[in-house]
Computed example of a mutant assay.
Amino acid sequence: MSKRAMILFAHGARAASWAAPFERLRGMTQARLPDVDVSLAFLELMSPRLPERVDQLAAEGVVDIALVPVFLGQGGHVLRDLPVMVEELKAKYPQIRFTVATAVGEAPEVLNAMADYCAGALS
């Protein structure tokens, strides 16, 4: 069992099919990081929720968790909700090192890939 983990943090939706691209992203990321436990967690409407997933990882002895918000921008959920959740998790699990990436949609390489895709839509 890996002592390191990555949680791809998404909003969640009522339709189970909404999670399909996030599951594919999780699988692709796991393939690139075979020594890291890569999983999904959600803000609401789907399971597991972020605190639930961290509880599971803590019980498995994970000591390092990277949180990656798979949101297009640094909106209210990433700027307000996530920091509160992370502070609560840090207080509950002081033995775990938490790092939080910026929203995936804020990364220049992601925006460039999206622009390439959009420009290609004209062909």
Rank of each mutant, 00 (worst) to 15 (best):
Arg24Val: 09
Ile65Arg: 01
Ala5Trp: 07
Leu43Lys: 01
Glu44Trp: 04
Ala115Arg: 09
Gly27Ser: 06
Tyr117Ser: 11
Arg14Ala: 08
Val36Leu: 00
Leu57Val: 06
Gly73Leu: 13
Ala107Cys: 10
Ser17Arg: 09
Glu106Arg: 06
Gln95Pro: 01
Ile65Glu: 01
Leu45Pro: 04
Pro34Thr: 01
Ser2Asp: 03
Pro83Val: 09
Gly12Asn: 02
Ala58Gln: 03
Leu57Ala: 00
Ala121Leu: 15
Val38Asp: 00
Ala119Ser: 13
Tyr93Lys: 06
Val38Lys: 03
Gly76Leu: 10
Asp55Trp: 06
Val70Ala: 00
Pro108Lys: 04
Ala66Met: 13
Arg26Met: 12
Leu82Trp: 13
Leu50Val: 11
Leu79Glu: 12
Gln74Trp: 06
Leu33Gly: 00
Ala41Glu: 04
Leu89Glu: 02
Glu44His: 08
Arg49Asp: 10
Leu45His: 05
Ala41Asp: 05
Gly75Val: 06
Gly120Val: 04
Gly120Tyr: 07
Ala107His: 14
Ala103His: 12
His11Ile: 10
Ile65Gly: 05
Thr102Ser: 15
Val104Gly: 03
Ile7Leu: 06
Arg97Met: 06
Ser2Gly: 09
Gln30Leu: 00
Gln56Ser: 12
Ala13Ser: 15
Gly120Leu: 14
Glu88Ala: 11
Thr99His: 14
Val86Lys: 00
Cys118Asp: 06
Ala113Lys: 05
Phe71Pro: 00
Ala121Ser: 15
Asp37Cys: 08
Lys92Leu: 14
Pro51Phe: 11
Arg49Ile: 11
Arg80Ser: 13
Val110Asn: 02
Lys90Phe: 05
Asp116Gly: 13
Phe42Asp: 02
Val62Ser: 01
Met114Tyr: 11
Asp37Thr: 09
Ala13Asp: 08
Arg4Leu: 07
Gly105Glu: 04
Phe42Thr: 08
Arg32Phe: 01
Val68Cys: 08
Met46Asn: 06
Ser39Tyr: 05
Gly73Tyr: 12
Arg4Gln: 14
Met114Asp: 04
Phe98Lys: 04
Leu25Pro: 01
Ala121Val: 12
Gly27Arg: 01
Val100Tyr: 02
Arg80Met: 12
Thr102Gly: 15
Ala31Ser: 03
Gln74Ala: 15
Arg97Lys: 13
Ala16Thr: 08
Leu72Ile: 13
Met85Ala: 15
Gly73Trp: 14
Pro51Lys: 09
Ala121Tyr: 04
Gly105Val: 02
Ala19Cys: 10
Ser2Ile: 02
Asp81Ala: 12
Met46Tyr: 04
Phe22Ile: 12
Glu109Gly: 02
Ala113Cys: 02
Glu109Lys: 04
Ala113Tyr: 05
Val104Gln: 01
Pro94Lys: 03
Leu50Thr: 12
Ala19Asp: 06
Val100Asp: 03
Arg49Gly: 14
Pro21Asn: 07
Gln56Ala: 14
Val36Lys: 01
Val86Thr: 02
Asp116Met: 08
Thr99Lys: 12
Ala113Ile: 01
Ala59His: 03
Phe71His: 01
Gly75Trp: 08
Asp116Gln: 08
Asp37Arg: 14
Pro108Arg: 07
Val63Cys: 12
Arg32Ser: 02
Val54Glu: 03
Val38Phe: 07
Phe42Ile: 05
Ile96Pro: 11
Asn112Gln: 15
Asp81Gln: 09
Met1Pro: 11
Val86Asp: 00
